[in-house]
Amino acid sequence: MSIAYDGSRASSDGDADFDCCVGCQVAEYGTMRVKSGLAEMLKGGVIMDVVNAEQAKIAEDAGAVAVMALERVPADIRADGGVARMSDPEMIVGIQEAVTIPVMAKARIGHFVEAQVLQALEVDYIDESEVLTPADEAHHIDKWGFRVPFVCGATNLGEALRRIAEGAAMVRSKGEAGTGNVVEAVRHIRAIRGEIARLTTLRPEELYAAAKNLQAPYDLVRACAEEGRLPVVLFTAGGIATPADAALMMQLGSDGVFVGSGIFKSGDPVRRARAIVEATTHFADAAVVAEVSKNLGEAMVGREISQLDGHGGLLQTRGW
């Protein structure tokens, strides 16, 4: 079964804002297939947080499939406190000029004008992210209205499907950003995969109640039940700090990983970045993971989840 993924709610913001590269009569831009398709191309890869062009080059050289441009990595956002917002466009443009791989950037939850700005900059993906301070406590961005695709965080299946209903073309399990502690990432990927597995065992009439309990649209719930997977690509984020962490998330069924503070807050970012890429590709081969894990220097300083109170608290509870 296919849900309405034919771009029937493709953006109607007018193509006049953009140069057409091929005959406009025949080309359709911003369709869900084009948006989710880019995420399909990122599968099996590592997306790395970077705060300047130099780090972006290191990430690209190490084999990152994309970079996330932001002013402060989550560990620093925790340390600094205050309101975290979209990054300076100048910095994003500098990173776009430095690399050839896709460049992503974060907008605050519900801040659709930050998203409009990021689209105007032609970033390749927008992360509507709980790592930044939410701008709206009731509404996420209506992502169908944009030509640029969105990735959103989720801690469970219902949350993931609500984001997809709003137009997200990619989901990442949230984990707990800026901690270097993988326990929350494991909890969230297990929750999402486990709830999907359970859906596949239900009888057709039971899916209606399941949709009610998940607080998610029935069509998306049925699609998960029939396919045994989300209708979009599922990455993992939040707390991944070592090659073994990355391989763990892949073995738990993730399509790829985001690494935030884990690389550039470690002792040897170049080696660690390459090692995490190798471990993500060869996640099922423990000999490879062992080899690339040698002599990586200090991992980032980790934080115990129960002791986050003085360090920014839980970010995963932002968004709903």
């Binding site: 771009g7 953009f18 140069d19 080309a27």
Partner: peptide
């Protein structure tokens, strides 16, 4: 030519 049609906002479907 890599990304010869432009960045993601220029990605498209066409017959």
């Amino acid at each position: 030519r890599r990304n010869g049609y432009g960045r993601q906002v220029h990605s498209f479907e066409a017959p």
